[in-house]
C-alpha cells in the first residue's frame, strides 16, 4: 500500500505542475494586458499588476481596427458554424439512413480527401476565390468549408442510432424526407449539433492561412490575422501591454464559450468523434 500512496503523490505533483503550465500563459497574458504603461513588464515584474487598467484594450484599437476585426471573426465563426452544422448533419443523415446507388464509393471518396493536405491546392483555390470576386469578402471564409468530410463523418456516426421505425411511421403520416430530418432527426441530436457547432466555431475563429490569403485589407482581417500582424520586436521597444490586450481580445471569447459549453464536454466529443 505504501507504494500506491507514493505513486499517488508523484501523480498529484505531476498533475499540479502540468495544470500550472497549462494555465499560466493565460494569467500572464491577462496581467500584462491590464498593466498601465508606467508599470514594468520585465522579468518578475510581469507576475503582478498594481494599478490595473483597461486602457490597453482601447490603445490596441488605435493601432489596428481590432473591434472591426472582432466583428469579422464573430460573423465568420457564427455563420460558418451554423451552416456547417446544418449541412454536415444533412449529409450525415443521408449517409446514415438511406441506401442509394454510389453510396459506398462517394463515402470512400469523402474519407480519402481527408488525407490530402489543403495546402497542396492552395494556389488554385486562391485563383478561384479571386475569380469569384471573394477577395476581401467574408464569404470566402464561410462558403468553401460549409460541409466538411470530418463533420459529415461525425454526424453520420451520431445519426446511425436514430430508429428506422420512427422514420417509417412519419412517412406513413405523410412527412417528406426533409421534414423527417428537420422535425425529428435534428431535435434528437442537439448535443451533437452543439458540440460540432462549438468545435467549428473555435476552428474558424483560430484559422490563419485562409483569412491571411483572402483578406487583403486591415478592416477585413479576422482577429487571428490582425493580431498575427502586430509589430513585435525583441526587447522593450515593443508595447507589450497593448500586444497582450489584443491577444486577450482574441482569446477571452473562446475561453468563455469553452467554459459555458463545458456541459457538452466538447473535448470528450472531439476525441470521441475521431475514434469513430
Amino acid at each position: 500500500m505504501k507504494r500506491a500512496s507514493t505513486e499517488q503523490t508523484i501523480g498529484m505533483i505531476i498533475l499540479g505542475i502540468t495544470m500550472i503550465i497549462a494555465v499560466f500563459p493565460f494569467l500572464f497574458m491577462m496581467i500584462i494586458a491590464l498593466k498601465p504603461p508606467g508599470e514594468s513588464v520585465t522579468g518578475l515584474n510581469a507576475l503582478y499588476v498594481i494599478n490595473p487598467t483597461i486602457n490597453n484594450f482601447f490603445r490596441i484599437n488605435q493601432l489596428i481596427p481590432i473591434f472591426r476585426n472582432a466583428l469579422n471573426s464573430i460573423v465568420v465563426s457564427t455563420a460558418g458554424a451554423s451552416t456547417t452544422v446544418f449541412f454536415c448533419a444533412l449529409a450525415g443523415f443521408a449517409f446514415a439512413k438511406y441506401t442509394f446507388p454510389g453510396k459506398e464509393i462517394l463515402f470512400v471518396i469523402m474519407i480519402a480527401t481527408m488525407m490530402v493536405p489543403e495546402e497542396t491546392g492552395v494556389i488554385p483555390v486562391f485563383i478561384i476565390v479571386r475569380r469569384l470576386g471573394w477577395i476581401n469578402n467574408l464569404l470566402s471564409l464561410i462558403v468553401p468549408k460549409i460541409a466538411t468530410a470530418i463533420g459529415i463523418f461525425y454526424m453520420r456516426q451520431y445519426i446511425t442510432t436514430f430508429p428506422y421505425t420512427v422514420m417509417e411511421q412519419a412517412r406513413i403520416d405523410g412527412c417528406s424526407e426533409f421534414r423527417i430530418f428537420w422535425n425529428m432527426v435534428l431535435p434528437n441530436i442537439t448535443p451533437a449539433l452543439a458540440a460540432w457547432g462549438s468545435i467549428s466555431f473555435i476552428v474558424r475563429w483560430n484559422e490563419l492561412l485562409w483569412p491571411l490569403l483572402f483578406m487583403r485589407s486591415r478592416v477585413m482581417y479576422t482577429l487571428t490575422v490582425a493580431i498575427s500582424l502586430l509589430p513585435t520586436a525583441e526587447g522593450l521597444s515593443t508595447p507589450w501591454q497593448v500586444i497582450m490586450a489584443g491577444t486577450a481580445i482574441s482569446v477571452v471569447p473562446l475561453v468563455l464559450i469553452y467554459f459555458l459549453l463545458q456541459r457538452f464536454q466538447i473535448a470528450g466529443i472531439m476525441t470521441g468523434s475521431l475514434k469513430g
Partner: peptide, 16 residues
C-alpha cells in the same frame, strides 16, 4: 485549455 486558443495567440504570449 491550451488547445482552445489559436496558434497565433499562444505564439504571441510565448513571444513575450
Amino acid at each position: 485549455l491550451p488547445y482552445i486558443i489559436s496558434w497565433v495567440a499562444a505564439a504571441l504570449v510565448f513571444r513575450m
